[in-house]
Design a protein around this nucleic acid. Structure first.
Lengths: 195, 195
DNA sequence: TCAATATCTGAACGCGCGTTCATTTCAACC
DNA sequence: GGTTGAAATGAACGCGCGTTCAGATATTGA
């Protein structure tokens, strides 16, 4: 039966996910205990099991929600028709979206090895789909002559690795503004693919 | 008193480090127990404490040895005088050296958060020194007009992130040879810095 | 108001953890 | 062959883990 909005579990569920995300990003999945997460939320450990069947599923759900969120958000982006414009849109989108969710990003590529094999396959599939989106742009640009990429798959991996790197050092209020970071990275991406 | 070569501890020490490196790279530091490492070596857990004061130090030593190894190896590389040649040497060196030590590389940037604060500072310092080596090349190339990099620090981080990415997907005997990977990445690095 | 239901507590379960240490094994030397 | 000392064992320590569940508590709907 559907619960009315405002009932307790509509509050506690998200609070558990938020606490788990923050703690796991900081300490790592294996190093965070269910009791720690529960304490952060303000409940006893047993209460967590009203919202997740086990610790593994809690991690998996965090990662799945993040990856599905990335894919859906990229789908929703208004994309130019030309390859150069699309690549720029991808670059700026990636930096922005990831900088807004540092904990989820960190977890989604640091905790892959803590997933059960079945769960790993699902997350790896979602990652692949995101990479495919970039590959499509690079392939299109290769065909039109806008880009010079000898290997589309490899170039996509290189670009994503470079963009992911931003999350490891960028700090709000630091030496460089987001806009400036985005501009510099866009320049490097553009040149890296020979455009 | 110095032990004769062939005595037991000259064998066991390195075997512990090798086992620890392999296991930690696969499962993560927090998820690997001293008993697991000992079993891999073929001794009881207590014997490990003849070679390391505790688990934390075991991790720290692995990371320190790796980082010092990278720095020493780069020092030993025969480096051209011109910026373009130096950047190429750095790129090829980085890919090769890191592909030869996937476990140590993986540990050295995945397990940073499991270091005690003091140990973290030391490892971060070594990482910084390596990044500085690349920054020096980029700065030199910027001054000579060989490169066009609006921000040397940011460009260095971007290049290293891109190169590190190779380790996440490259498999010996896969679709692309090392030589081909090195060539393609060198082309992307070269263009990314505007050379 | 009262029963039904959702939510949470608090104690308990077996287990494996990092680490210590008295004891045993065993190779090297005189 | 007996002595020495390093190397390794194996049992033990207290502790926190993930998970379960009977019971208490709070909220809802009639």
């Amino acid at each position: 039966m559907a619960r009315k909005s405002g009932s307790h579990s509509d509050i506690t569920g998200p609070r558990i996910r938020a606490a788990a995300e923050r703690l796991i990003a900081r300490q790592g999945f294996a190093a965070v205990s269910m009791r720690q997460i529960a304490a952060e939320v303000g409940v006893q450990a047993g209460a967590l099991y009203l919202y997740t069947p086990d610790k593994q599923t809690l991690l998996f759900d965090l990662m799945r929600e993040h990856m599905e969120g990335v894919l859906a958000a990229w789908e929703a982006v208004d994309k130019p028709a030309d390859p150069l414009g699309r690549l720029q849109a991808f670059t700026l989108f990636h930096i922005r979206y990831h900088l807004d969710r540092p904990d989820a990003v960190f977890i989604s590529y640091m905790e892959l090895r803590n997933l059960d094999p079945g769960n790993y396959e699902i997350i790896a599939g979602l990652r692949g789909a995101y990479e495919d989106a970039l590959e499509d742009i690079l392939r299109q640009g290769g065909e039109t002559g806008d880009f010079r990429v000898p290997d589309v798959s490899l170039a996509a991996k290189a670009v994503i690795a470079m963009l992911n790197g931003v999350n490891t050092w960028y700090r709000e209020g630091g030496r460089l503004s987001r806009d400036r970071v985005e501009r510099i990275y866009w320049n490097m991406v553009r040149r890296a693919v020979g455009a």
